[in-house]
Write a protein that binds this DNA or RNA. Sequence first.
DNA 1: CTACTATGCAACAAATTGTTCCATAGGAGG
DNA 2: CCTCCTATGGAACAATTTGTTGCATAGTAG
Lengths: 193, 193
Amino acid sequence: MKEDPRLIATRQTALDAAQKILMDEGVLHVTHGAVSKATGISRSTLYRHWPDARCLRDAAFRRIATPPNIPPKTDGPLRSDLRWLLGVLMGALNDTPWGQIAPQVVAAASTDAEARLVITEFMKDRFASVEAVFAAAIDRGEITADVPVDQLIELAVAAPYFRKLIRHEAMDEDWLDRHLDLLCSIAKTNSGQ
Amino acid sequence: MKEDPRLIATRQTALDAAQKILMDEGVLHVTHGAVSKATGISRSTLYRHWPDARCLRDAAFRRIATPPNIPPKTDGPLRSDLRWLLGVLMGALNDTPWGQIAPQVVAAASTDAEARLVITEFMKDRFASVEAVFAAAIDRGEITADVPVDQLIELAVAAPYFRKLIRHEAMDEDWLDRHLDLLCSIAKTNSGQ
DNA sequence: CTACTATGCAACAAATTGTTCCATAGGAGG
DNA sequence: CCTCCTATGGAACAATTTGTTGCATAGTAG
C-alpha cells in the first residue's frame, strides 16, 4: 500500500518553498500564506498537511537542519584525518542549505529546548569523530597521550563555526591549511615535551 | 528644554518588557500586543513610539545588543592582558543580557544586512583590541613578530563564542585558564624558532 | 468503471495588526 | 494656583493574517 503521489508532491514542493523562504527571509516569514503564494498550493491544503504555523516552521527546519554525516577516517596521518573532517565541515558551512540555515538553528536553540537538544546531540557526535582521530594518532604514536585533546577539538571545530556564524567570512583551502598547521603544531608541541 | 519624563518612562518600561520577551521567547513574540499585556501600557501609546513591529523589534535588539566595551590593557605580560580581555568577554557571554541575546543577533545577521553590519563592525573592534595586546607583547620582546597573530586572535575569540552559542556550556575561570595556557603555548612555540 | 481521497475554492470565524479620535491626566512655565 | 501643552488610555474601527469548514472537482487505486 503505497502513499498517494499527490501527498508526496505537495509536501515536497511546499517544503522546498518553505526552505527557500526560511533561508532568504528568516523564520519570521515562513507562513502558510507565504508558502501558498510561492507555490500556488491552496492554503487549505497546506493547513491539512501542517495544522499550524509552528508545525510548518518545524518541518521546514527539519528539512534542512539535518547536519552532514561525515564518514570517519582514522588511518592517519593526523593532519590528513583532521583535514578530511574539517574539510567536509567547511564545505557544508560554505555551500549547503544546512550551512545557510545554521544561524537560525542557533537562535532557535536559545529559546527552544527541543532545538537545543538537536544541536547538542549533533555536536556530541561531531566531537566523537574528532576524538577518534586523535585517539588513532595516539595509538600510532604520532602524538603522546598527554595532549589536551578536548581543548584541541574545541579549537578545531570552533574556528569554522565562528567564521561562518559571526564573522560571515568564507573559508577556503588556504585558510584550512593554515588552521591545520596551527592545530598540528599545538598537538606536537604539547606532545610528550 | 528637557524631554518629557513620561516619554522616558514609557520607553524604558516598554523596552524592558520587550527585552525580556526577546530573551525568553524569541524575536517572534516581540509584538505591541505582548508588550502592552506585559506592561499595562496601552497599545496605542506603543504604536506612537514604535510605528510597526519591525521598529519595536529593532529597538528591543538595539537596547541590549550593544556589545560590552572592553577597556584595553596592554601593559603585559601577554597572558595577563589576554586574560583581561577574554575574561570580560566570557563574563559578558555568561551573565549579561547581551550574552543571552547573542544567538538571536547571529540569526538576524544572516538575513538582515543592517544587523550583519553591526556585528562585523563590533568584531573588527574586538579583534583590534586583541591585536593591540599581541603587538604590545611583540614590542616588549615577549614574543617575536613571526607569530601567526591573526589566527591566534581568531582561536582566542572563537572558543568563547562557540561554547556559548553552539555548545550552550558555561565557562568558568578554570576553563579560561586552560584556554589561556594553550594560547600562550602556541604563541611561545611559534615565536622566533 | 467505481470507490476513495487529495486538492482547490469560496465563504467564514477569530485573532492580530495598525489607525483614529477624544477625554483625561500629568508636566512645564508663569 | 492657573494655563497651555503633550502624553497617555480607551474605545471604536479597518485591514490583514490566521485558522476552519463544506463542497465540487480531479487524480488515484483496484
